[in-house]
Protein backbone atom coordinates (compact mmCIF):
# COMPACT_ATOMS: atom_id res chain seq x y z
CA UNK A 1 0.00 0.00 0.00
CA UNK A 2 1.36 3.40 -1.02
CA UNK A 3 1.79 5.96 1.69
CA UNK A 4 -0.09 9.15 0.93
CA UNK A 5 0.72 11.01 4.10
CA UNK A 6 3.69 11.24 6.42
CA UNK A 7 3.57 12.81 9.82
CA UNK A 8 6.21 13.72 12.35
CA UNK A 9 4.99 12.98 15.84
CA UNK A 10 7.07 14.59 18.59
CA UNK A 11 6.58 13.18 22.05
CA UNK A 12 8.02 13.32 25.53
CA UNK A 13 8.83 10.41 27.83
CA UNK A 14 8.40 11.02 31.55
CA UNK A 15 8.00 9.05 34.75
CA UNK A 16 8.01 5.26 34.82
CA UNK A 17 7.77 4.86 31.05
CA UNK A 18 11.39 6.05 30.77
CA UNK A 19 12.29 2.57 31.99
CA UNK A 20 11.39 0.89 28.73
CA UNK A 21 14.02 0.68 26.00
CA UNK A 22 14.05 1.72 22.38
CA UNK A 23 12.56 -1.40 20.75
CA UNK A 24 9.90 -1.72 23.43
CA UNK A 25 9.03 1.96 22.97
CA UNK A 26 8.57 1.36 19.25
CA UNK A 27 6.31 -1.65 19.88
CA UNK A 28 4.36 0.26 22.49
CA UNK A 29 3.66 3.07 20.02
CA UNK A 30 2.76 0.56 17.30
CA UNK A 31 0.17 -1.22 19.43
CA UNK A 32 -1.19 2.18 20.47
CA UNK A 33 -1.43 3.21 16.82
CA UNK A 34 -3.35 0.04 16.03
CA UNK A 35 -5.73 0.57 18.94
CA UNK A 36 -6.24 4.13 17.73
CA UNK A 37 -7.25 2.69 14.37
CA UNK A 38 -4.74 4.80 12.38
CA UNK A 39 -4.50 3.96 8.64
CA UNK A 40 -1.03 2.44 8.90
CA UNK A 41 1.27 1.40 6.07
CA UNK A 42 3.13 -1.90 6.27
CA UNK A 43 6.39 -3.15 4.83
CA UNK A 44 6.21 -5.96 2.25
CA UNK A 45 7.39 -9.50 2.92
CA UNK A 46 6.75 -12.36 5.30
CA UNK A 47 6.99 -10.26 8.40
CA UNK A 48 5.11 -7.04 7.72
CA UNK A 49 6.11 -4.16 9.98
CA UNK A 50 4.50 -0.77 10.38
CA UNK A 51 6.31 1.77 8.20
CA UNK A 52 7.87 4.32 10.48
CA UNK A 53 11.20 5.65 11.61
CA UNK A 54 12.25 6.82 15.02
CA UNK A 55 14.65 9.28 16.58
CA UNK A 56 17.94 7.70 17.71
CA UNK A 57 17.71 5.31 20.68
CA UNK A 58 17.33 6.94 24.05
CA UNK A 59 19.20 5.23 26.88
CA UNK A 60 17.10 3.15 29.27
CA UNK A 61 16.04 5.35 32.17
CA UNK A 62 16.31 8.67 30.32
CA UNK A 63 13.44 11.15 30.08
CA UNK A 64 13.00 13.18 26.95
CA UNK A 65 11.22 16.28 25.69
CA UNK A 66 12.02 15.69 22.04
CA UNK A 67 11.57 12.10 20.86
CA UNK A 68 9.98 11.80 17.49
CA UNK A 69 8.69 9.27 15.01
CA UNK A 70 7.90 9.66 11.35
CA UNK A 71 4.83 7.63 10.51
CA UNK A 72 3.49 6.73 7.07
CA UNK A 73 -0.26 6.60 6.51
CA UNK A 74 -2.34 5.32 3.63
CA UNK A 75 -5.18 7.76 4.16
CA UNK A 76 -5.11 11.42 4.97
CA UNK A 77 -5.80 12.17 8.61
CA UNK A 78 -6.14 15.62 10.17
CA UNK A 79 -3.15 16.13 12.44
CA UNK A 80 -5.23 17.32 15.39
CA UNK A 81 -7.46 14.30 15.18
CA UNK A 82 -4.46 12.00 14.96
CA UNK A 83 -2.87 13.63 17.96
CA UNK A 84 -6.02 13.18 20.04
CA UNK A 85 -6.71 9.58 19.12
CA UNK A 86 -3.12 8.41 19.51
CA UNK A 87 -2.58 10.27 22.79
CA UNK A 88 -5.58 8.49 24.26
CA UNK A 89 -3.95 5.12 23.61
CA UNK A 90 -0.43 5.86 24.85
CA UNK A 91 0.70 4.66 28.27
CA UNK A 92 1.06 7.03 31.18
CA UNK A 93 4.03 9.34 30.73
CA UNK A 94 4.23 9.37 26.93
CA UNK A 95 3.03 12.81 25.95
CA UNK A 96 2.55 13.93 22.36
CA UNK A 97 3.93 17.47 21.94
CA UNK A 98 3.10 18.02 18.30
CA UNK A 99 2.05 16.34 15.09
CA UNK A 100 3.17 17.91 11.82
CA UNK A 101 2.59 16.84 8.28
CA UNK A 102 5.80 16.46 6.28
CA UNK A 103 6.45 15.58 2.63
CA UNK A 104 5.87 11.88 1.96
CA UNK A 105 9.06 11.62 -0.06
CA UNK A 106 11.19 13.54 2.45
CA UNK A 107 14.29 11.81 3.78
CA UNK A 108 14.20 10.52 7.31
CA UNK A 109 15.04 13.30 9.74
CA UNK A 110 17.23 10.86 11.58
CA UNK A 111 19.99 11.28 9.01
CA UNK A 112 20.06 15.00 9.58
CA UNK A 113 20.73 14.90 13.30
CA UNK A 114 24.20 16.15 14.14
CA UNK A 115 23.97 16.59 17.88
CA UNK A 116 21.72 16.08 20.87
CA UNK A 117 21.35 18.11 24.04
CA UNK A 118 20.86 16.60 27.49
CA UNK A 119 20.39 17.81 31.02
CA UNK A 120 20.81 16.35 34.45
CA UNK A 121 20.36 17.79 37.90
CA UNK A 122 23.03 18.13 40.61
CA UNK A 123 20.44 17.32 43.26
CA UNK A 124 21.92 15.13 45.94
CA UNK A 125 25.55 15.84 44.98
CA UNK A 126 28.04 18.22 46.55
CA UNK A 127 29.41 20.34 43.77
CA UNK A 128 32.53 22.48 43.86
CA UNK A 129 32.29 24.94 41.01
CA UNK A 130 36.06 25.23 40.66
CA UNK A 131 36.56 21.49 40.28
CA UNK A 132 33.61 21.21 37.92
CA UNK A 133 35.05 23.87 35.64
CA UNK A 134 38.37 22.06 35.51
CA UNK A 135 36.75 18.74 34.63
CA UNK A 136 34.47 20.43 32.12
CA UNK A 137 37.52 21.80 30.32
CA UNK A 138 39.03 18.33 30.08
CA UNK A 139 35.80 16.84 28.79
CA UNK A 140 35.45 19.47 26.10
CA UNK A 141 39.01 18.81 24.94
CA UNK A 142 38.93 15.06 24.96
CA UNK A 143 35.47 13.93 23.89
CA UNK A 144 32.53 14.40 21.57
CA UNK A 145 30.98 16.84 24.04
CA UNK A 146 30.44 19.98 21.98
CA UNK A 147 29.34 22.31 24.71
CA UNK A 148 28.50 22.27 28.38
CA UNK A 149 26.73 24.74 30.62
CA UNK A 150 27.13 24.47 34.38
CA UNK A 151 26.59 28.13 35.11
CA UNK A 152 23.35 27.55 36.98
CA UNK A 153 23.59 25.87 40.39
CA UNK A 154 20.96 23.25 39.71
CA UNK A 155 22.45 21.10 37.00
CA UNK A 156 24.35 20.55 33.81
CA UNK A 157 23.29 21.07 30.21
CA UNK A 158 25.48 19.52 27.56
CA UNK A 159 25.49 18.73 23.87
CA UNK A 160 26.97 15.58 22.36
CA UNK A 161 27.98 15.52 18.70
CA UNK A 162 27.06 12.56 16.50
CA UNK A 163 30.41 12.39 14.71
CA UNK A 164 34.07 12.99 15.62
CA UNK A 165 35.80 13.09 19.00
CA UNK A 166 35.98 10.34 21.60
CA UNK A 167 32.48 8.85 21.99
CA UNK A 168 31.27 9.19 25.52
CA UNK A 169 27.85 8.34 26.85
CA UNK A 170 25.84 10.79 28.92
CA UNK A 171 26.44 8.67 31.97
CA UNK A 172 30.21 8.66 31.42
CA UNK A 173 30.15 12.42 31.04
CA UNK A 174 28.29 12.81 34.33
CA UNK A 175 30.67 10.40 36.05
CA UNK A 176 33.67 12.34 34.86
CA UNK A 177 32.16 15.68 35.73
CA UNK A 178 31.03 14.73 39.24
CA UNK A 179 33.73 12.13 39.87
CA UNK A 180 31.24 9.48 41.01
CA UNK A 181 31.02 5.72 40.60
CA UNK A 182 28.86 3.56 38.37
CA UNK A 183 26.16 2.94 40.97
CA UNK A 184 25.81 6.60 41.89
CA UNK A 185 25.44 7.72 38.29
CA UNK A 186 22.58 5.26 37.82
CA UNK A 187 20.49 7.33 40.22
CA UNK A 188 20.79 10.47 38.09
CA UNK A 189 17.83 11.25 35.88
CA UNK A 190 18.87 12.52 32.46
CA UNK A 191 16.57 14.29 30.05
CA UNK A 192 17.10 14.63 26.33
CA UNK A 193 16.25 18.28 25.67
CA UNK A 194 16.98 18.95 22.03
CA UNK A 195 18.08 17.62 18.66
CA UNK A 196 20.31 19.70 16.40
CA UNK A 197 19.68 19.16 12.71
CA UNK A 198 21.99 19.79 9.74
CA UNK A 199 20.58 22.48 7.56
Amino acid sequence: MEAIQKVKITYGKYGLIRFIGHLDTMDTIFTAARRAGLPLCYTEGFNPRIKASFSPPLSLGFSSDVEFMELFLNETVAVDKLKGSLQKELPEGMIIKSVEEIAVKSKSLNNAIEAAGYRFSFEGFNVDKGLLNERKKKLLEASSVLSMDISGDSGCDFVIGMGGGKKMSSREIARNLLDIDEDEVKKIEFTRKKFFFKL
Binding site: L16, I17, F19, G61, P91, D183, K186, K187
Partner: peptide, 19 residues
Amino acid sequence: LTNILSMVEKPGRYLGIEI
Protein backbone atom coordinates in the same frame (compact mmCIF):
# COMPACT_ATOMS: atom_id res chain seq x y z
CA LEU B 1 11.08 3.52 43.54
CA THR B 2 12.93 5.22 40.69
CA ASN B 3 16.24 4.73 42.50
CA ILE B 4 15.54 1.02 42.72
CA LEU B 5 14.37 0.81 39.12
CA SER B 6 17.50 2.64 37.99
CA MET B 7 19.67 -0.05 39.50
CA VAL B 8 18.10 -3.15 37.93
CA GLU B 9 18.83 -4.60 34.55
CA LYS B 10 15.22 -4.83 33.36
CA PRO B 11 13.14 -2.21 35.15
CA GLY B 12 10.37 -2.63 32.56
CA ARG B 13 9.29 -5.74 34.50
CA TYR B 14 8.22 -3.75 37.53
CA LEU B 15 6.37 -0.69 36.20
CA GLY B 16 2.75 -1.84 36.56
CA ILE B 17 1.47 0.65 33.98
CA GLU B 18 0.72 -1.83 31.21
CA ILE B 19 -2.19 -1.05 28.92
